[in-house]
């Protein structure tokens, strides 16, 4: 509950931008794009932002909350910097998707749906990504890795983590 007023203004800017984009005022139809933008900027949907969105769009708060809890890409608790999604759709499941979950559960020491303590990674599962041909599939920050095995997954993951650290150092 300690979000600053500044953040609320930012939400207003997001809403205004979308309104401007669609040249329309107060309309519930643009709820999802607005939530997507907020989710992208903050990696979750803070409570008071949802209240603000409902007020601006003039729709009941419960409707906003319903949408926010329905889609897996929205979250009400802060997500990590990087989101790792493992597909557990039929094809991926048969080709060992659950093994991939096990590997990452051990590596990151979190269960699916949770975020690491340092807020770096969030592990998620999804029911189908639509690329069954290269199953099992994992997505890290919108980049797709297919035809995974336990070893391949570990390699990809280590490389990603190293690169991430390199990036951090170069920034400093």
């Amino acid at each position: 509950m300690t979000q600053s007023k500044k953040n609320l203004e930012e939400v207003n800017i997001i809403i205004d931008e979308i309104f401007l984009d669609k040249s329309i005022k107060k309309h519930g139809n643009f709820l999802i794009p607005i939530l997507q933008d907020i989710q992208e900027s903050y990696r979750y949907l803070p409570e008071e932002f949802l209240i603000q969105v409902a007020e601006r769009l003039q729709i009941p708060l419960i409707d906003v909350y319903g949408v926010a809890t329905f889609y897996q890409s929205f979250g009400l608790i802060p997500k990590g910097e990087h989101i790792i999604t493992i597909c557990l759709g039929t094809a991926c499941y048969i080709h060992g998707g659950t093994n991939m979950v096990d590997v990452l559960t051990k590596e990151l020491n979190i269960k699916p749906g949770e975020t690491t303590k340092d807020k770096k990674f969030t592990l998620e599962t999804v029911n189908c990504l639509g690329c069954c041909a290269i199953s099992p599939v994992m997505v890290i920050d919108n980049k797709i890795y297919g035809n995974l095995t336990r070893d391949k997954l570990r390699k990809v993951f280590y490389r990603f983590r190293e690169n991430e650290e390199d990036l951090k150092q170069s920034e400093i």
Binding site: L50, P60, L61, I62, D63, V64, Y65, G66, T69, F70
Partner: peptide, 18 residues
């Protein structure tokens, strides 16, 4: 508009906001 469906699949529930 005090209640609506929240979550989805097996976890679907009728609920108030938050």
């Amino acid at each position: 508009s005090a209640i609506n469906f929240v979550n989805r699949g097996h976890k679907t529930q009728i609920s108030t906001e938050f």
